[in-house]
Nucleic acid binder design. Structure first.
Lengths: 148, 148
DNA sequence: GGTGAAAACCGAGACCC
DNA sequence: GGGTCTCGGTTTTCACC
């Protein structure tokens, strides 16, 4: 994992359709060498997958909210229960007063309310505290060029 | 934007390296027709870009936290100031007591503290409240198969 | 690890329905 | 809109360094 790997990752985050010949030029390598580097990054799991970034509004999911989920029990084994709610795009176990923090994308605030109802249906959930997003400044990938 | 478009988006979210011939088979279309559909989805901005999903820990950014940023002024024009901090992977203007919610990836909790310091450097910021993530259940794309 | 080239494969477009 | 075909570029693999 050297500087060339980080540059390749940054370039692929920007546009994963970039040809290996172009990638190679950007980092000072031949197309074959760039290809081999990227293949190993995938193999080692550094690059998890190639995917597309979709506009949520275009899919009719214009409402974004973060919900703090309080619980009366250990939530560490409840990943599947949260994953079963398709509107949840993220779910994290957190330190602090709440137990789980989830990111929700829904069509309307009424639908958001329905998601909250389903969250209450998860065993151990005792409360929710929703924060609605008014405007998203940005959403981007991990910075590949930090020293770490 | 019909059911075939949604299936194509879902397939590309899973693996954007899938060949158009394979995509076409999955939705009952020829490779050329699938290609044309995807081209239009990109053109209309439904698909914003093709990117790679990178393991933050592999890049030495193993600490994830959400920070509520309080302010004493209107923050709506501060997008650039937040974007200038590379550890911030998301920034949203929110409804509620805080003004902005940011998602931070850092190498260590010491580095997280440094990010908080830089957040205080943004004009108008009067306080922060960080929530550290202990375990991530999942992070995934918008569900493409909801009625909306 | 990297290079350069060969071969299989795929994307992108033209044309017709 | 979709199907079919074709061409040029790209991926992928290989022997060699």
């Amino acid at each position: 994992m050297d500087d060339i790997d980080r540059k390749l990752i940054a370039a692929l985050q920007r546009d994963a359709t970039t040809a290996y010949a172009t990638l190679g030029k950007e980092v000072g390598l031949s197309a074959g060498a760039a290809h081999e580097r990227v293949r190993k990054l995938r193999e080692r799991g550094v690059i998890r997958r190639t995917t597309v970034d979709v506009d949520p509004a275009a899919l009719g999911q214009g409402v974004l909210a973060y919900v703090m989920v309080d619980s009366s029990a250990w939530m560490g084994d409840s990943a599947a229960a949260f994953a079963a709610i398709p509107e949840l795009v993220e779910a994290h176990v957190i330190a602090g007063s709440a137990s789980v923090l989830v990111k929700v994308r829904a069509a309307t605030t009424e639908r958001l309310q329905d998601v909250l109802r389903r969250l209450y249906g998860i065993e151990g959930v005792s409360g929710t505290q929703a924060t609605v997003v008014l405007e998203t400044f940005f959403e981007r990938g991990v910075a590949a060029d930090l020293t770490g």
